[in-house]
Nucleic acid binder design. Structure first.
Lengths: 198, 198
DNA sequence: GTCTATACACCGATAGAC
DNA sequence: GTCTATCGGTGTATAGAC
């Protein structure tokens, strides 16, 4: 069943809003992002935002949900032949490349206020738990293959990969200007899995 | 030359203010920390804060300067017999244990606003550059000894250690409640240097 | 130097016309 | 559903009495 023209327009507009939110979250963080900023970036009035989203929190939650869904889609589309360890590396690589393109990192550890409200958002919690479960399965499979340290709890591994995907080192290396993007991403992925000792 | 009683009182009061700032920065982050919060935590009036510090930014900068000085002191007091790689590990371990005790992480990657103002604070920049220089020397020495990967730029190594000291993984593992503090710190230090592959 | 009181600006959210 | 206008609340910083 096709969507009506109005519904399509509505969906397109909403996607544009989420794009703006993504840019602003990456640039200023949740606490410093204002609804005026979002409205200006989209090019609509502030009041109109509230016809699409009930609050600033739900706006951010929607943007983060979309990104989590994208991550799940990337995982789902990977070749089944790929080894678990390579799937994990590819996912981290994808997340870092996406951040380089201006996307907000996965875990909004930047704002306690946002974290709190997200934990109350059922849709977001459901998605993040699904992603956690898939990553956990990959970690366990990689441990069984011997490509990840068997003595580490999978929590430690999953969180460490998450953290690396949000790592400020990415920004620091980029602003230093000494390495191109591909090289930077390589360094981050490699040191995450192989360590600094070499 | 001894300080007058008044001067001593002033210094003690100022240290108490910085303690409060440290607690609040760790708990709420810079953007959400208010001067009312600080005043309430110290137990003085908000107006009095401005007799000690000119602005919220300079207040946060002073707290971070104190912490950076502490880090430099820890480095200075280490036994000269300790291998460079072990000094680096011990420094990371110290930073993580300090965070577990409620201290703010070194790099305020949590707030773009704070980062900006800090880069304009000459005192802070001088301290952080001194710390960077010392860490860089340790990294190079460790690379020469073969205990750190020689193919990695020292920038990558130094930033990665910094990032690990601020890593949200610490909070996640703690709130999971599955490991005690010592175990948690061990996991973080070990995976940083040895990687996840084992 | 500490307090109370306040100036001034900004933000999230809403109201109401079209 | 989009706009303009505005309310209520809060935050930084300052003024002025003591």
């Amino acid at each position: 069943m096709r969507l009506s023209f109005q519904k399509q327009q509505f969906a397109v507009r909403e996607d544009a809003i989420l794009d703006a939110v993504n840019v602003l979250l990456a640039k200023k963080g949740f606490d410093l992002m204002t609804m005026d900023d979002v409205a200006a970036e989209v090019g609509i009035a502030k009041g109109s935002l509230y016809k699409h989203f009930a609050s600033k929190e739900s706006l951010a939650a929607a943007a983060l949900c979309r990104m989590t869904r994208d991550t799940l889609a990337v995982l789902a589309e990977m070749s089944p032949d790929l080894a678990p360890i390579d799937k994990l590396k590819a996912t981290l690589r994808w997340a870092l490349e996406r951040r380089l393109k201006g996307a907000v990192p996965h875990l909004p550890s930047t704002s306690v206020a946002l974290q709190r409200s997200l934990m109350l958002n059922l849709g977001y919690v459901r998605l993040i738990m699904k992603l956690n479960a898939e990553l956990k399965q990959l970690v366990i499979a990689a441990q069984n293959e011997g490509s990840l340290d068997r003595t580490l709890p999978h929590e430690v591994i999953v969180y460490t990969i998450y953290a690396r995907s949000c790592d400020p080192t990415l920004e620091y290396l980029r602003t230093s200007g000494r390495y191109d993007d591909a090289q930077t991403v390589d360094y981050l992925v490699r040191t995450c899995f192989e360590g600094l000792n070499g």
